[in-house]
Simulated scan of single mutants.
Amino acid sequence: MRKGPVLTDTGRVDNTRVPHPDLAGYVPDAPEPAVATAALATVGTPAGGPLLYARVDLAPAGDGSPVVMELELIEPDLFLTAAEGGVERFVEAVAGL
């Protein structure tokens, strides 16, 4: 998913802002999955198994290459309805734990 900026005006408090402006599906460019995979390789789980969920937020560096801006292992909005079958895949993943 690609999200737009939430805080756009310096010093302006907007309590009515849209939580995920400009939300759209996104197919990453070739270097982006490699950077995200490298970031996730640094994270372990207590049981040693795979992560059920993780989100790697990337931003362009000065030269345009992707850099990690944020790595989240918990998310209040999983965007399960953004892709067909998302809810079903999540249920299957949880059931497989």
Score class of each variant (00 low, 15 high):
Asp63Ser: 00
Val13Gly: 03
Val43Glu: 07
Thr10Phe: 15
Pro5Asn: 11
Thr8Lys: 11
Ala83Gln: 10
Val67Phe: 10
Ala24Cys: 11
Pro50Tyr: 02
Ala95Phe: 02
Leu58Tyr: 07
Pro50Cys: 05
Glu70Leu: 01
Phe90Gly: 00
Arg17Tyr: 10
Ala39Ser: 10
Ala83Ile: 02
Ala95His: 03
Gly49Thr: 12
Pro33Asp: 09
Val68Glu: 14
Glu88Phe: 01
Leu78Lys: 06
Ala24Leu: 05
Pro66Asn: 07
Pro5Ser: 12
Ala83Leu: 08
Leu52Met: 12
Val43Pro: 05
Ala54Ser: 14
Ala34Pro: 05
Gly48Lys: 02
Ala34Lys: 10
Gly86Gln: 01
Val68Leu: 09
Asp57Leu: 01
Leu73Ser: 06
Thr10Ser: 13
Gly49Ile: 01
Leu73Lys: 01
Gly49Met: 07
Asp22Tyr: 00
Arg2Ala: 05
Leu97Met: 06
Ala24Phe: 02
Asp77Val: 03
Val43Ala: 09
Met1Asn: 06
Val94Trp: 13
Gly11Asp: 14
Ala61Met: 04
Thr10Val: 14
Pro21Trp: 01
Thr81Leu: 11
Val56His: 05
Glu75His: 00
Tyr53Thr: 06
Glu92Cys: 04
Asp14Pro: 03
Leu40Gly: 09
Ala30His: 07
Ala38Gln: 13
Ala47Thr: 13
Thr10Asn: 09
Gly25Glu: 12
Glu84Met: 00
Val43Leu: 13
Leu7Val: 08
Arg55Gln: 07
Val35Glu: 14
Gly49Glu: 15
Thr42Ser: 13
Ala30Ser: 09
Leu7Gly: 11
Ala34Phe: 04
Leu58Met: 07
